[in-house]
Simulated assay, not measured.
Amino acid sequence: MRIMDMIARYAASKSWTLRPNIVLVEGTSDEALFRRADELSRLAGQVLLGDNISIVAAGRGDQGGTFGVARELIALRSYAPLVLDKRGFLAYRIVALVDNDHAGRQIIQDVTRLDRSAVEFQDIVALRPVIPKFIKTDPLSRQHECNLANLPYGMMDWEIEDTLSPKLIAKFEKANPDIIVERTVNRDKIHYNLEDSAKAVLHLFVQREAALEDLSGVVEIVHMLRAILGLPSCT
Rank of each mutant, 00 (worst) to 15 (best):
I131C: 09
V201W: 01
I190L: 09
L140I: 14
T28M: 11
E213N: 12
Q143K: 13
E31I: 02
N147E: 15
L43I: 13
G50Q: 07
P129I: 12
D214S: 11
L84R: 13
K167I: 12
P129F: 04
L24H: 04
W16C: 11
D5K: 08
T163G: 02
G59A: 01
L194I: 08
A126G: 11
M224W: 12
K14C: 13
T28G: 00
G217F: 11
A210Q: 03
P177W: 02
W158F: 15
M4E: 13
N193R: 03
A70L: 05
V181T: 15
A210N: 02
I94T: 07
T184R: 03
D5I: 05
A57L: 06
G65M: 03
G68D: 04
S41N: 06
V185M: 09
W16S: 10
F205M: 09
T163I: 12
L151E: 15
D5A: 10
A75V: 14
Y10S: 05
E39H: 10
M6P: 00
E31D: 07
V222Y: 00
M155N: 15
D30N: 08
T184G: 00
A200W: 02
T66N: 05
L24K: 01
A57R: 03
A227K: 13
M224G: 05
A37Q: 02
A210R: 00
R208E: 15
I169V: 15
I124Q: 05
L231V: 06
F34W: 02
D178F: 08
A44D: 14
P166K: 01
T66G: 09
I74E: 07
F67L: 13
T112R: 04
I190E: 10
A210M: 01
H203K: 11
D101M: 12
T17Y: 04
I180V: 15
A200D: 06
I107G: 01
V219L: 09
I190W: 04
L97I: 06
A175F: 00
T17Q: 12
A91W: 00
A200L: 07
P81D: 12
A149N: 09
D178H: 13
S15M: 09
P177N: 01
P177F: 05
N147Y: 08
D110M: 08
V23C: 04
D62A: 08
R42V: 12
L140E: 14
K199G: 00
N186T: 14
